[in-house]
């Protein structure tokens, strides 16, 4: 297979997965104003649980140790990954989403991220410690028996289908009265509460749904790459997604597609071509982290509403079938 084509294939798969992440974090921050500073932990939970429910029982050899060890057919593992991320979201939400300042949730998420990473790395029994899980089977490939490269196309189709579903769901939520309540909470929680909205319940639901997006994206990653370990789960990974969301245009689901294209894909691809400096192995990583941090600050400083800003939601009266249109006109013109 043509090398360039294969390279584009991989980029396209990641693009789809990043779109899913961005819609998830956009629902949380862009729509509902919830600060999740460890989005990647929800990705990791999805990846791990999808992994250990697809892998089959550990053989004690190279695959190491891990919990569950089920061998379930696609698409059950990603669903379980999404559910696992949702459960973590409930736990974090109970602590951080009550009527406290938004600092507190941010503090809780940062802390949970640190601790979860530490425990997953140091406890070999959960997900094989720092080595992580590997040799996760590719969805349905026991049926297709394709080579890794040819199988890539099948996987891309799966990703595209899921991304389209993700977009439809995100748009439906955003444009519904449900989305309107979330946006109201983002603007002013007290007003939303005074108008009878249960702020905690709404924030919790947005936090959960966003985390399900994270979990499913993580599950897709592990099923594509076949492996996941704590080194793929660091602070910069969360903030690549944040930068994509902010630059794409918080609150705008189309902007998320643009953000997912501009930031992670371009970013990761450009830094891939930077030369390695001998004797300084982490230098590229360091520059990448600095650039992401800078990008976050510059984005909210100079382009706070992003490349594709959130758009006004407009309404129009649909003339009723038997009612008189004249009445509607009258109302509209005041």
């Amino acid at each position: 297979m043509n090398g360039l084509l294969y390279y584009l294939l991989i980029a396209a798969v990641y693009f789809c997965i990043y779109c899913i992440y961005c819609w998830g974090i956009n629902l949380q921050f862009g729509v509902a104003g919830i600060l999740n500073f460890t989005f990647i932990t929800f990705v990791a939970v999805g990846a791990y649980f999808a992994g250990v429910t697809a892998l089959g029982a550990p053989d004690g050899g190279l695959s190491g140790q891990y919990i569950l060890g089920w061998h379930l057919p696609f698409p059950i593992p990603p669903v379980l990954g999404g559910i696992a991320a949702a459960i973590l979201a409930v736990l974090v939400g109970i602590v951080g989403l009550r009527r406290l300042r938004s600092d507190y949730l941010a503090i809780v998420t940062v802390s949970v991220g640190q601790i979860a990473w530490f425990i997953a790395g140091n406890n070999v029994h959960l997900f094989n410690g720092w080595d992580g899980i590997s040799q996760v089977p590719q969805p349905w490939n026991s049926v297709f028996h394709l080579s890794f490269t040819n199988y890539g196309w099948v996987f891309l189709v799966i990703c595209i289908v899921l991304a389209i579903i993700g977009y439809i769901v995100s748009q439906a939520l955003y444009r519904s009265p449900y989305g309107r309540v979330l946006r109201a909470i983002r603007d002013d929680e007290d007003v939303a509460a005074a108008l009878g909205k249960n702020v905690f319940a709404y924030k919790m639901s947005a936090f959960i749904i966003g985390s399900v997006f994270a979990g499913i994206g993580g599950a897709l990653t592990v099923e594509f790459v076949g492996a996941f370990n704590p080194s793929g789960w660091t602070t910069p990974e969360t903030f690549i997604i944040w930068a994509a969301m902010l630059i794409g245009g918080q609150g705008n689901n189309k902007g998320m597609i643009l953000g997912a294209f501009v930031v992670p894909v371009v970013f990761n691809e450009i830094t891939r071509f930077l030369p390695n400096i001998p004797g300084h192995p982490q230098l590229i990583d360091s520059f990448r982290g600095m650039a992401i941090g800078l990008l976050l600050i510059l984005a909210v400083r100079f382009r706070p509403s992003g490349l594709l800003p959130e758009r006004k939601t407009l309404f129009s009266l649909v003339p009723t079938v038997k009612g008189s249109e004249g009445d509607d006109r009258h109302v509209l013109q005041g």
């Binding site: 939520l173 519904s176 009265p177 989305g179 309107r180 309540v181 946006r183 939303a192 909205k197």
Partner: peptide, 19 residues
Amino acid sequence: ENLLLAPQHQFGEKSWAAL
């Protein structure tokens, strides 16, 4: 939208209903 937010117990304010 400020006004449309106010009616109580809107059916469409449930996430599943939105879908």
